[in-house]
Structure formats: structure tokens, C-alpha cells
């Protein structure tokens, strides 16, 4: 089913409504990707949801990415939204500094964002301001680091039945 909206159309509407809070238009693999200012991410998502023409009212997935090299904007929060009626997908990215990765919650727009935000907090330590119950969801509460950040190792330190030299990696 073809989409009823084009990327340019939506981007223009978005740009008109939010001006410089919206970054440049990217379309990797035909999916409209827009960088948005962190402080207005929730406002944009709300606008997308409430706009009668767009009706982007389905949150596909929400997650984080860690870019340790990108100073000042190490943590990205990525929203994938979907307009079921128009069959149109959009990806929003908001960048946060690692010292204070705070962004407003969208749980008041989408109940389902609750656990996705908790998971992002669990993995990356992103603090979603206004979240009703922001604590770890998958890992144990006693964990004292955010495991998906690049600097933390994956492996269990207690494994002793392997020899790293053989696995083509450090």
C-alpha cells in the first residue's frame, strides 16, 4: 500500500510549524528522518499526533543510541512514528549531552511509551522528565551502570571457559 503523503510534504508542514527546532531533511532508505531539538521533541510528537491531516498517532518504537565521539550530543533518542491512516512513517532524533541526558517524556501522549522509555533509561541512562515510574525494567535495580553505552563491556567477567585470543578480537 503506497503512502498517501510524501516526505517533502510532511517536512514542509513540520518546518512551517516549528521553524528552527527542526533540522534538515534526511531520507535514508525513503524514511523521513528529522533531527529535532531535544526540548521540543515532545511538542513535535504531540503536534504530529493531533494534526488532522497527518494523524501520526502510532508509536512504532522508541530507543537510544550512544555516539561517544560526538561531543555534547552523545546520546540520541530515536522515535519511530507511524501514521496508520496515511501509511506514513517518520523518524525523529533528538540529541542529548551525556552529562545531563534529560528529555521530556511522551507517556502522556502514548501509554505504550512507558516501558520503552524505561528501557532506554535502563540501557542508556536517559532521564525522561515527567515519567511516572522511571526505573530499570530489564536489568536488576542494583545495577550501577548503563550497559548499552559503548564503553561498557558485553561479556560476563566470570566466564572462564574461553580464550579470547582465538576469536579474532581483542
Amino acid at each position: 500500500m503506497a503512502s498517501k503523503l510524501t516526505n517533502e510534504e510532511v517536512y514542509t508542514l513540520l518546518k512551517n510549524a516549528f521553524g528552527d527546532k527542526v533540522g534538515e531533511m534526511l531520507t535514508p532508505f525513503d524514511l523521513l528522518t528529522v533531527e529535532v531539538a531535544a526540548e521540543s521533541a515532545n511538542a513535535i510528537i504531540e503536534w504530529l499526533k493531533k494534526d488532522e491531516k497527518l494523524q501520526v498517532s502510532y508509536l512504532t518504537v522508541l530507543g537510544g543510541v550512544h555516539y561517544p565521539e560526538d561531543k555534547g550530543r552523545e546520546i540520541a533518542v530515536v522515535y519511530h512514528l507511524h501514521s496508520l491512516v496515511n501509511n506514513f512513517r517518520i523518524r525523529l532524533k533528538a540529541f542529548l549531552p551525556i552529562e545531563n541526558p534529560t528529555i521530556a517524556t511522551i507517556t502522556y501522549l502514548y501509554v505504550g511509551a512507558n516501558w520503552m522509555e524505561r528501557e532506554t533509561f535502563d540501557f542508556y541512562g536517559v532521564i525522561f522528565a515527567g515519567h511516572p515510574n522511571l526505573k530499570r525494567v530489564l536489568n536488576d535495580d542494583s545495577m550501577d551502570y548503563f550497559p548499552m553505552r559503548k564503553e561498557y563491556q558485553l561479556e560476563d567477567a566470570t566466564r572462564e571457559d574461553k580464550d579470547d585470543r582465538f576469536f579474532g578480537r581483542e
Binding site: 535514508p28 524514511l31 528522518t33 512504532t60 530507543g63
Partner: peptide, 20 residues
């Protein structure tokens, strides 16, 4: 290099892969 989202209809619903 790129960013991609691909989804399929899994047994339980939309199974998506967001790959960077």
C-alpha cells in the same frame, strides 16, 4: 553506512529492525 528501519509481520506483530 546508513540508518534503516525494516519491519515484518512476526508471529506476534510488527517485528522491526532499526539498524545503524
Amino acid at each position: 553506512v546508513g540508518e534503516i528501519y525494516q519491519s515484518v509481520e512476526g508471529g506476534n506483530g510488527e517485528l522491526g529492525f532499526y539498524l545503524i
